Every structure is written in structure tokens, then in C-alpha cells.
Amino acid sequence: METGNITALADTDSMGTVSMYLAMGWIMAGFMVIIVGSTAAPMVMGLPTLLPLLGGWSSAMSAVVWLIAGPLVGAVHGHFLPLFGVGAVAICSTALFTTIFVRLLGMLAVLPVIAVLMFLGVPASNGAMSIYMEPEMFRVLHEVLPTPAAVESVRSILYFDADTVGTHLTTFAVWGVISLVVVILIDRSRPRRPDAALPVGTEN
């Protein structure tokens, strides 16, 4: 039986892990902006201010991640526009998901968010290890979690002319929209106090 290499890895990605690390940059950018922002700048965590902030942050950090992976490190060559676009969507979706748990748990949100995005997401990502070598549970999670969607989006863009990106964008959209709806419901059921957005120490 002959084996053919449909798309060879770049010389700078001999282990095939660049897609995972690029995706992890997106996921961490979305996670950290909410975790840090909820503590350092709680006045911007209301949806009217948070959503425009996330739009700018997602775009800026997607460009920064590409800049690091591309021109600075040399692990990625070209593909700026598709990686930038998918990265911005992935960052925003992850941030909205994180916002749910920050609303409910405060800083303890780190625990469930990391559990979903890292402890479950990384093994299910098909990044560090082939998904076909994973237990069945991770194969199921591979189809629904945002971390696998991020990894597979990068791999599709870099090596397969973005053939499956649409499917993964749908995954991000579902997570983002559902997360936004849940945050809205939380805010309506637990209205923020007038002074809740003020930094500690500024109360009259």
C-alpha cells in the first residue's frame, strides 16, 4: 500500500503543532481579557461597554497573535486575512463564554472555564495528539468545543485552503450567541448595583 502526503508540513512546523499553539493564543486572549478586566476594570464589564471593547480587543489580539507566529517567529507564512478573521471570532466567542462564569462566580470562573477550554479542549483538539488515539469522549467533544474548532480552523487555513473553516465558524457562533444570551439573562435577573462598576475604594 502506498502512502501519499497530501499537504506536507512546513519546515518550521516539523511536528505539526503550530496550529495548536496559534489556536491557544486565540483562546487565552479571549479568556484573559475577561478575567483581568473583571478585576482591574469592573466599570467596563457591563454589556454596553463590554461588547465594543471585545470587538476592538478581538481584532487587535488576533493581529498580534499572527504577528508573533508569522513575522516574529516564522512559524506561519502568509494567510493573514483568514487567520485574522477566524482569530477575532474565536477570541470574542471565548470571551463571552468566560463572561458567563465571571458573572456567576467572580474570580472562581477560572476553574470551570479552564476545565472546558483546556482540560477538555486540548485533548479533544486533535492538536498535540491525533483524535483517533483519544478515548471516545474526546472524539465527541472534538465536534463541539471551541478549542478543537480553533485548532482545526488554523490547520484548514494553513494546509487545506480553508476547506472546513465554515463549519468551525459555526461552532464559534453558536458558543458566542448562546453565551451572550445567557449573560443577558443573568444581568436581567441580577441587576448590577449602581456602585457595582466602581473600582474598590471609590465608593462615597
Rank of each mutant, 00 (worst) to 15 (best):
N5K: 12
I6S: 15
A10D: 15
L22V: 15
L22S: 07
A23C: 09
W26D: 09
W26F: 15
M28W: 15
V33P: 02
G37S: 05
T39I: 08
A40T: 09
P52R: 08
P52G: 08
A60Y: 02
V64I: 14
V65A: 12
I68N: 08
G70L: 01
G70H: 04
L72E: 04
V73Q: 14
A75P: 02
V86M: 13
G87E: 14
A88V: 03
F101H: 03
L108I: 09
A109S: 15
L111P: 02
V113K: 06
I114P: 00
P123A: 05
N126I: 00
G127A: 03
S130W: 00
Y132I: 06
M133L: 13
R139G: 13
V140Y: 15
T147A: 06
A149N: 09
E152Y: 06
S153E: 08
V154R: 13
S156V: 07
D161E: 11
D161R: 14
A162D: 06
T164V: 09
T167P: 00
H168Q: 12
V177K: 06
V181Q: 04
I186L: 14
R188I: 03
S189H: 12
S189R: 12
P194G: 04
P194I: 04
D195C: 00
N204T: 09
N204A: 15
